[in-house]
Computed example of a mutant assay.
Amino acid sequence: MRMTSMVAGLAVAGVCVAGPALAVDATQVTRKFSASNENLAPGLDVGVGFGGYTGKLGNETGVGGLFNITANAQPWEYIGLEFGYEGQNIPIDDARVLGGNHIWRNNGSGLAKLGPFIDNKWHPFVGAGFGLSFLHASQGSRPIYGNDWQVEWPLAAGIEYRMGHLSAGVRGTYRLVGGEDLTTIPGTTDEAKGSLFNGNLTVGGRF
């Protein structure tokens, strides 16, 4: 009985000592993952990168450079929104077409991002959204390639670093593509289909 009472007393004492310590740790964790007013402010990013199509469509095209400009909003601490334009020049690497031809991709997309702010500096995130692209094939690729509207569902992952009102980041975006009617698989009448994978660096500001 005496041993049981002693153990119970030590347990109660341990809880009393550990309770404030756990509370401090919880407070520190909350502060570590909280966002400042600067992080929640809307902003504007510009970016550059490269990428290209996958699948059968990727077999006939190459890797091309891109640029984008994006407006950002952070209506909730862990959920952000962005809307922007992306332009990309994708070279055509197809034996049916003379060299030097390309596809100019004009895209407008919206993306919802989910991720915490860490130490008010780091912002890792994942995102999903919807976009629409107009693909303009160069004149020298006709009639093998044609202009086309393309629906896209972007899935993104990346990380941003905040320096006060300034930010810099890196991300990769995999876009599921629908409605391809750009070209056919060589030797067939089947449409060449594929997804789109791009990577880019961004810099911007929060106001």
Rank of each mutant, 00 (worst) to 15 (best):
W153A: 10
S138V: 06
I90T: 14
M3L: 12
S195A: 13
I79C: 03
V46I: 15
T27M: 11
A11N: 09
N72G: 00
V24A: 11
T188E: 09
R2P: 00
T27H: 14
N39S: 09
R171H: 12
Q28T: 10
G187C: 14
G51R: 08
A8K: 13
L98W: 01
Y161C: 04
G179K: 03
E86V: 08
G43H: 00
A26D: 14
Y85E: 08
R142W: 10
S167F: 02
A192D: 11
G100I: 14
L196Y: 15
G9I: 06
N68F: 08
W149A: 10
L81R: 07
E191D: 13
G19S: 07
A8V: 08
L155W: 14
N107E: 10
R175A: 07
R162L: 09
F117K: 02
F33G: 05
E86P: 00
T70A: 02
P20M: 08
D181F: 04
V63P: 00
P154K: 10
A71D: 01
T54F: 02
L114F: 15
N89D: 11
K193S: 11
A128L: 15
Y161N: 03
H102K: 13
E160C: 01
W76E: 01
W104E: 09
R175W: 05
N59V: 03
A168F: 14
T189P: 05
V15R: 11
W76V: 03
V48W: 09
N106S: 15
T188G: 09
E60D: 08
K32E: 13
G158A: 07
S138A: 08
L66F: 08
N89G: 09
